[in-house]
Computed example of a mutant assay.
Amino acid sequence: MDQCVKCPDHQYANTEGTTCLQKAVTFLAYEDPLGKTLVCTALCLSALTAAVLGVFVRHQHTPIVKANNRALSYILLISLFPCFLCSLLFIGHPNTATCTLQPIAFGLVFTVAVSTVLAKTITVVVAFKFTAPGRRMRRLLVSGAPNFIIPSCSLIQLTLCGIWLGTSPPFVDSDSHSEHGHIIITCNKGSVTAFYCGLGYLGSLALGTFTVAFLARNLPDTFNEAKFLTFSMLVFCSVWLTFLPVYHSTKGRVMVAVEVFSILASSAGLLGCIFAPKCYIILKRPDKNCLKKVWN
């Protein structure tokens, strides 16, 4: 006992306590079954988003595409594409580049997506409630003022990301104590305050969008997507409210997998809830995609 030696951090003692063994380096790799599943899911959902965009472009002159703000629908679909792909930054061996890109890619693309939903929601409310001739809100709608929500909200998130990267950026970190016999390679968030500021801003934006959409859910039903927007934001908020406690109760590969799953689930919620009903009418019920159905 007088000759006992503590093993270094990168090693651990065998069961007999006679020698030190090398700890295995672990991270969420592309070769792992879990990693492969998440990668395939992200690529499939990205391909589905591109297909939906193709359907909308092909049928861009039909009433259902025009009635739901064609330009904002394009922006939302284009922003959802990198939302799915940004999850790939969290898979594989962490390095300085991926750790730095993670908060920028995640924060910006999701802010663009959520702010686009907010712009669509405000457009619906203004179109149904403030369309009397001469009203100021009607002039704002005609001028496309709701579209300025997207760059304004994105600029705030970009500023928060810039402050984060300028003060305490994310970096590659190793955890040799959480899991016996393993060294967990992860991306340390750097400034925890900056991380929660960015996530809190995105959550506030999502909650505000949900509130506006919920208040507009009982507007006239003809081609009014307020109910679909409400449900999509309900799914989005539910995913990220569930994410926080689960994220803090896990370690290693499972923690990263939870993060990736939340990204994919929330993006899929926006894609499915908003665009699935429209694609169904366009592809399966073209008889409903006409002006007579719009105004009746």
Rank of each mutant, 00 (worst) to 15 (best):
W164N: 02
E225S: 12
S168T: 12
F195T: 09
S232H: 05
V172F: 04
F236P: 08
K251C: 03
G162P: 06
L234D: 06
V172E: 09
P169D: 12
F243T: 05
C161D: 10
W164E: 04
V258E: 02
V212Q: 10
V256K: 03
T211W: 05
A194P: 00
C161W: 07
L215D: 00
V256P: 02
S249K: 09
L241F: 15
A206L: 11
K251R: 14
L165I: 14
F236E: 09
V212T: 12
E225C: 10
T211K: 02
P245L: 02
S232A: 15
T186W: 00
K227W: 04
P245W: 01
I185E: 09
E179I: 11
I163H: 00
S178K: 07
L158R: 02
S249T: 08
I183W: 00
K227E: 13
F214A: 10
I184S: 06
A194S: 15
S249L: 06
T211Q: 00
Y201W: 13
F214V: 01
S168Q: 13
S174K: 14
L202M: 15
D221P: 09
G208R: 10
C161I: 03
G162A: 15
T250R: 09
V258R: 00
T186P: 01
L202V: 11
L244E: 05
Y196R: 07
A194G: 05
V239R: 13
P220C: 08
S238Q: 07
T242H: 00
H248A: 01
T250C: 10
F236V: 08
F214G: 00
C187E: 07
F214H: 09
E179P: 01
L160H: 09
D173Q: 12
F223K: 03
P245I: 01
V256I: 14
T242I: 12
T193N: 02
V246Q: 00
D175W: 08
T211G: 02
A206C: 12
G203V: 09
F223W: 06
F228L: 14
Y201M: 05
G166Q: 10
L229R: 04
A226C: 10
S232M: 05
G190W: 06
Y247W: 06
S204D: 11
A194L: 07
H177K: 14
